[in-house]
Design a protein around this nucleic acid. Sequence first.
DNA 1: AATATATGCAAAG
DNA 2: TTTGCCTATATTT
Length: 382
Amino acid sequence: MPEGHTVHRLARTLRELLGGERLRVTSPQGRFADGAALLDGRRLVAVEAWGKQLFCAFAPDDAPRGRAARAPGSSDVSSRAGRGAVPGRDDSPGPPDPAGADMLWLRTHLGLYGAWTFTGAPGVADVAHAIGAPRKRIGERETVVRAPAGSSDAEVHVTADDLGSDELGSGARRPGEGWEPPAPRGQVRARLLGRHMVADLTGPAACEVITPAEKHAVTARLGPDPIREGERGHDAERFVARAGRSRVTIGQLLMDQAVIAGVGNIYRAEALFRAGVDPLRPGREVPPSSARALWDDLVVLMRDGARTGAIVTTRPEDRTGPQPPGRLRTRQNTDGTPDAVPADQAFYVYHRDGLPCRACGSPVLLKELAGRNLFWCATCQR
DNA sequence: AATATATGCAAAG
DNA sequence: TTTGCCTATATTT
């Protein structure tokens, strides 16, 4: 269920935790055995997200060595703030050419159910960490650390569980020394194993090894990605022009990865509400100023999502709904930041059908459109 | 134990 | 427009 923000977050995590390393690549489940054999022993030199697509570049081990290539606008593997340094890391300069003829790319797409699970050696990454489905992350538990009375905000602390005290939390050993990765859990399609970290991929819609040319063909079909805005220039104008000449509804255009990459069902519904745009209005009948506002808002919302790991679109003054009885539930993947918001106050319309609109009080509507649930307020969105 | 659900997408009809 | 697929988890029987 990840939207683009999740995939960018994954890219950063893979870059930081495995970038620059020679990896063992396997397919414990077996369904990716051939592809894994192609990548096994190669070096992870770049990790890139575009919309919901995740690309990992694997260079031959004899290729020029260096840190993972810097994707424009993203941090490279040297940004390891808050994590322990890894001994023996190769520091030689000169990233390999990601388009080089001997490069192989791993293309993955999480689809509805996919997830990456990360497990690290003590002192390298002290928590098991998964992104994507399932909602409850494997080996992780969230606890509310602070929930001030009268405040809708709470701090959430993410702790590892289920992995045993020998593996996690003991700072006694040197980082990664003597570390063995845990046995694969569930249907692990692909496993990327570094010296101190393992990344397991389950349930992807796509997991394949492709050439640079094939990778280029995939990205050429994708529209501009709000999280990557600024790399190419004119992304906003591209989106506005493309949407503005279409007879397809703006609600469908926002879900079309060739029109705008990375938007999913939640960002679609929420951005349309925030812009006051009727999802059923044809793109060519949406004023360009509204289309531009949609794009600009998605840049902010999705970058926030990539930073915090959670989709929260409500403004603080609109999070005044009644607290549900029982224990506080917060949006997952919050990284323990104060940005945590009760799950039922994170959205304006998504999954709020039948409930009163936060702005006008009229009931939020639900309609199935192109196989997906569309939520909107017919009063606020024109 | 069976069923419902999910932030997706492409192929088939 | 409908179907099929990939998987783990919460809910219901």
